[in-house]
Simulated assay, not measured.
Amino acid sequence: MDHIPTPILSGIRQRCGACGEGKLFKGYLKLNDACPHCGRDMTAADTADGPAFFVGFGVLILMAPFLFLVPMSPLPIGLKLLAMAGVGAVVTLLCLWLLPAAKGILLNLQLHHMAEEANFEKSPETPDR
């Protein structure tokens, strides 16, 4: 029995949402034009800034307590600066680590649901209300 991949799990694995095998990216965040395994067209979807938005806010929500507690701690200023640099490094590395998976999820969801750019022009078949 063939396994039908889910868009979310395939996106986390950075694989094609149609076949679950082909890689989505040919670079860090550079998309393949088509799936190398099944040939699915990847140019129809555009995630824009969505992945960066979700990853950035998610990581900052997780790290916010540290960003408030470190400056208020009774540590000497040198250790506070070192701790803040460490928190900054953790935020940066978490964002860089999560960004490809978030882009893969949003791309696979767009392709799965055949999402396209909104078109608000009135078509001739649409009756007036």
Rank of each mutant, 00 (worst) to 15 (best):
N32C: 06
D41L: 03
S10A: 15
M72H: 10
W97Y: 15
L107K: 00
F120S: 05
A83G: 04
K26H: 08
I61K: 01
L96N: 08
F68W: 15
I8W: 06
V91G: 00
L99M: 14
M1F: 07
L111C: 03
D33T: 01
L69Q: 15
K26E: 07
L107T: 10
D2E: 12
K23Q: 11
R13N: 10
P7G: 11
E21D: 07
L106K: 00
G39W: 06
N108F: 11
P100A: 01
V59G: 13
Q110G: 10
L31V: 02
P7M: 10
K122T: 12
M42G: 01
T47M: 05
R15A: 10
V90Q: 02
A89I: 09
L31M: 14
L98K: 04
C35N: 04
G27H: 04
P51T: 09
A102M: 15
G22N: 10
M114L: 07
K26W: 04
C19T: 04
S73K: 07
P5C: 09
M84F: 13
A48M: 08
D49L: 06
E21G: 02
L107I: 10
C35R: 05
C35A: 02
G20Q: 06
I105C: 07
I8S: 11
L106Y: 08
M63H: 00
I105P: 02
M114Y: 08
E125G: 00
T47I: 11
C19Q: 04
A83S: 13
C16M: 02
K80C: 02
D33G: 13
L62K: 06
T126W: 11
L106T: 06
L111T: 06
A101G: 03
L31T: 05
V91E: 05
K30F: 00
T43I: 13
G56D: 08
L79K: 14
M84Q: 12
L109A: 05
L69S: 15
E21N: 09
F57H: 13
P100G: 08
M42K: 07
L82I: 15
P7F: 07
Y28R: 02
T92A: 11
T92E: 03
I4C: 03
G50I: 00
M1R: 06
F25A: 04
G88T: 11
M63E: 09
M63Y: 14
L60W: 14
L69N: 14
P124M: 01
R129P: 09
L81N: 15
A34M: 02
A101T: 02
G20S: 04
R40G: 02
M42C: 03
K122M: 07
G39L: 08
Q110K: 12
A85G: 14
T43F: 09
C95D: 03
V59Y: 02
G58R: 14
P127Q: 08
T47D: 06
P71K: 12
L29S: 00
F25Q: 03
H113E: 13
G104H: 05
S10Y: 07
R13A: 13
K122E: 08
L24K: 01
A85I: 14
L107G: 01
G78F: 14
P7I: 07
F54S: 09
P36D: 08
Q110Y: 06
N119D: 15
L9S: 09
I4T: 06
L9K: 11
P7H: 13
V70L: 15
C19H: 04
A118C: 01
